[in-house]
Amino acid sequence: MASYKHIQTLLKKDLLLELRQQYTLYGIVLYVASTIFIVYLSMGQPESAVWNGLFWVVQLFVCVNAMAKSFLQESRGRMLYYYTISGATDYILSKLLFNAILMMVMTLISILLFLLLLGNPVYYFGQFIMISLLGGLGLSLVFTFLAAIAAKAQQQAALMAIMGFPLIIPQLLLLGKAARQVFEPVVQAGFSQMILLLICLDALIIILSIILFPFLWRD
């Protein structure tokens, strides 16, 4: 119960910080908007397969940039303070939760902008939202953990991309494949299997983060 309370407090702290320092939040929103605008200028309104591919690539870049600063805004001393009062597990769980919320909000914003600018080829809208949110969750979990690693190496975005892109490719392929069937009115087999696999992957990442994060913050 104590750890639940710790996570709640840490999450509240992150949310408050985000709302008070609004420029970082608006920075990410602006990043989403300008990326999608560039895609729109260079592609116009593409057909559904291209639309789908572009959507996931944009999600990937948004995620790398949104997660990159997660472990940099606090000083070493304050990090140590959090560590001693709440423990590493609660700390990483609160970060994962916060970044998942942040990424899901960004996912919704980018869906909106995609629909506005690049047209609407989506047939099953509810399913598409569900897959996108699941994708945003998976991306945010992986890149939060990698941000924690990269924060230790002081080479943020570049290192995160190098480490993260190969790790995320299978998940992106799976997401793209699962999302492909929302564009046509035919039901394809294997959909629930893919969703289950994605959920299992997310669970795996959370478990790995809980086990491995304490080692990152030992020094």
Partner: peptide, 13 residues
């Protein structure tokens, strides 16, 4: 330590 953490994370994924 940190490369060991990445090695385990990457392998498991």
């Amino acid at each position: 330590n940190i490369s060991a953490v990445y090695n385990i994370f990457a392998f498991a994924m």
